[in-house]
């Protein structure tokens, strides 16, 4: 092959595809060989630099607490924000819930107190009666003749 290597042939070579004709030309052509060497050398340096940079960013250090069940715990920003929103919602809702619970308990206590007062009033009333309420008509019947007798006795005297 007399002509220089084309751009496509040089790229194909760097990508791993080398034809025998290209190889033969590169052996004889210092210009094409130099072009290839520069490209391959730069790509090799890039690989080394990318790996060195990755190591400097902690690529070799697997997080110690990595476990499949615990992975991605709040790693994603969306989940982090969702978790923060949930915490905020809980923090806001908890006092409201507590207030509502306290109000409900207070109302319940007031109702119980009212019921107790009524019951006590009823008990007081029952106790204050000489005879039980259902027996009152009978007592009045019994007491009526007594009063007539008394009046008759008074008249006789």
């Amino acid at each position: 092959m007399n002509r220089h290597l084309s751009n496509e042939e040089i790229s194909a070579w760097a990508g791993g595809e080398v034809s025998p004709a290209c190889e033969e030309h590169a052996r004889e052509c210092a210009e094409c060989r130099g072009e290839l060497e520069r490209l391959l050398s730069a790509l090799g340096e890039f690989r080394g630099a990318a790996r060195a940079w990755s190591r400097s960013q902690g690529a070799e250090a697997v997080p110690h607490d990595w476990r499949p069940s615990r992975a991605r715990r709040f790693r994603s920003p969306v989940i982090r924000w969702a978790a923060a929103a949930a915490v905020l919602a809980l923090a806001t809702a908890a006092p409201l819930y507590r207030n509502s619970l306290e109000r409900r308990r207070a109302a319940q206590a007031a109702a119980t107190a009212r019921a107790d007062t009524l019951l006590l009033q009823q008990v007081d009333f029952e106790i204050s009666q000489a005879v039980p309420v259902p027996m009152e008509p009978l007592v009045s019947l019994i007491s009526q003749p007594d009063s007539s007798n008394t009046s008759q006795q008074g008249t006789a005297k």
Binding site: A50, R51, W53, S54, R55, Q57, G58, A59, E60, V62, P63, W66, A71, R72, R75, S76
Partner: peptide, 24 residues
């Protein structure tokens, strides 16, 4: 891990994102 993290890092150039992607 190093390989997955490295690929994510050189693709995104963001360390936090690379670690998240490696975990995912």
């Amino acid at each position: 891990w190093p390989r997955v993290f490295r690929f994510a890092l050189v693709s995104l150039r963001d360390r936090d994102a690379a670690e998240t992607i490696a975990q995912d």
